[in-house]
Simulated scan of single mutants.
Amino acid sequence: MTHLLQNYGTRIPMTFTHGEGVYLFDETGKKYLDFTSGIGVMNLGYSFEAGKAAVKTQVDALAHLSNLYNNPLQEEVADLLEQADDYKAFFANSGAEANEAALKLARLIRPGKEILAFEDGFHGRTFGAMSATMQDKIQNGFSPMVSGFSKAIYNDVDSLKASVTPQTGAILFEIVQGEGGVTPLTAEFAAALKSCQEQGILLIVDEVQTGNGRTGKLFAFEHFDLQPDIFTTAKGLGNGLPVGAMLVKNCYADCFSAGKHGSTFGGNPLAMASAKAVLTELTSDGFLAEVADKADFLKAQLKEKLASKPTVKAIRNLGLMVGIQLTDGTQLQEILSDARAQGLLVLSAGKDVVRLLPPLVMTKAQLADGVAILEGIL
């Protein structure tokens, strides 16, 4: 008997009681090496003491503050996010909410124009974000979708060119399609998107999963010399607390005038205290360089140990965001189950991809331990 809706299906029969570092412990005391980070949330692990201390201090002082009043923490977090003061920030509670804000703002900036998105992309399950998520399994049962969206094939320059019309006002995309199978943007496609931007089409980058250091840069678009007109982030921004953000170039910021959008809990003091601690850590000297170094190590380990396995079709990554594509997708759930049995937590993506999102603070030795378990299974 459960009092919960079954929208998550049959949950994995495991109950975790606590986390330490990059490990989770279940009710029997068994320890699991976490290569999921709570689906890209716990980027700094379960023992990020600066974040815990900041939240504890804030909850004792002021747990909530209406957006009717000044909130200095919001200014501090926005300053850490703003990319050389080129952007202004709006705070929400999740990636889907941040993307909804981006879509609304795009329609104000380019009224009456369409927003182009891509097959296998994922932007959330609220109606606007879902309408931009070009996957039947996400949209089925909810028609009609919000109008004003068109689609193209990701990383296909010819498809992009054919899909862009005079009615295209903005293009929404991920730097790495996460739910779609961990497919990174190609340099050629990035150049084609930049060309669209030069023609006056807005670029909206969804950094919900790729942001906050996941790829070895604060934001993944930095790998491609892109400067989006709007970008969003969430997941790892709060290291466990629900927080999202949308950032827009200063030249468009006035389009979100008073009353055009809002959120009761967006920019909540608890979330901002955690986000400030997270961003302070991410932007400290050498942190992201160390993440990039560990990503290179993990890539080398995967290539050496797994690439030649007959069960492995391809290995894709950008930083510490990895997809291991299987030759037979029917084995996917069995592999995830076998990994759990051996004390390793990994994710799926799409129909045939094992997804790895280890915490950014995981050591090389711990990364190697996880790869060794996968090697035995595959």
Score class of each variant (00 low, 15 high):
residue 128 G to R: 14
residue 199 Q to I: 01
residue 39 I to V: 10
residue 329 G to P: 09
residue 94 S to M: 04
residue 132 A to I: 06
residue 8 Y to A: 14
residue 207 E to N: 11
residue 202 L to I: 01
residue 120 D to M: 09
residue 142 F to I: 00
residue 371 V to T: 12
residue 11 R to G: 11
residue 71 N to C: 03
residue 27 E to A: 12
residue 117 A to W: 08
residue 123 H to I: 05
residue 371 V to S: 02
residue 119 E to K: 08
residue 102 A to T: 08
residue 142 F to C: 00
residue 74 Q to H: 03
residue 14 M to I: 15
residue 134 M to P: 00
residue 282 L to P: 07
residue 377 I to Y: 00
residue 242 P to S: 08
residue 342 Q to T: 15
residue 334 E to V: 09
residue 145 M to H: 11
residue 41 V to R: 15
residue 94 S to K: 09
residue 243 V to F: 05
residue 187 A to C: 00
residue 37 S to W: 04
residue 13 P to G: 13
residue 330 T to M: 07
residue 123 H to W: 07
residue 49 E to M: 13
residue 253 A to N: 09
residue 264 T to V: 12
residue 226 L to F: 02
residue 201 I to W: 14
residue 80 L to P: 02
residue 181 G to I: 04
residue 90 F to T: 10
residue 238 G to L: 04
residue 142 F to N: 05
residue 97 E to K: 15
residue 168 T to I: 00
residue 313 K to F: 01
residue 41 V to S: 13
residue 377 I to M: 02
residue 61 A to C: 06
residue 291 V to Y: 06
residue 129 A to L: 03
residue 239 N to K: 02
residue 364 K to P: 06
residue 368 A to R: 11
residue 78 A to P: 09
residue 95 G to H: 03
residue 247 L to D: 01
residue 275 A to E: 06
residue 227 Q to C: 07
residue 77 V to D: 11
residue 49 E to F: 05
residue 302 L to Q: 00
residue 65 L to C: 08
residue 318 L to S: 07
residue 214 R to T: 09
residue 11 R to D: 10
residue 75 E to Q: 12
residue 57 T to M: 09
residue 306 L to C: 01
residue 252 Y to P: 11
residue 289 A to M: 03
residue 359 P to K: 01
residue 181 G to P: 05
residue 123 H to F: 13
residue 307 A to S: 15
residue 146 V to A: 11
residue 277 A to I: 01
residue 216 G to F: 04
residue 318 L to W: 04
residue 250 N to T: 11
residue 9 G to M: 04
residue 18 H to D: 00
residue 66 S to E: 01
residue 198 E to N: 04
residue 145 M to W: 02
residue 62 L to T: 10
residue 303 K to D: 13
residue 368 A to Q: 14
residue 239 N to E: 10
residue 300 A to G: 02
residue 80 L to I: 03
residue 95 G to V: 03
residue 361 V to I: 09
residue 226 L to E: 05
residue 98 A to W: 04
residue 27 E to K: 08
residue 116 L to F: 14
residue 343 G to N: 06
residue 245 A to K: 12
residue 192 A to T: 06
residue 131 S to P: 10
residue 291 V to I: 08
residue 69 Y to H: 13
residue 184 P to I: 02
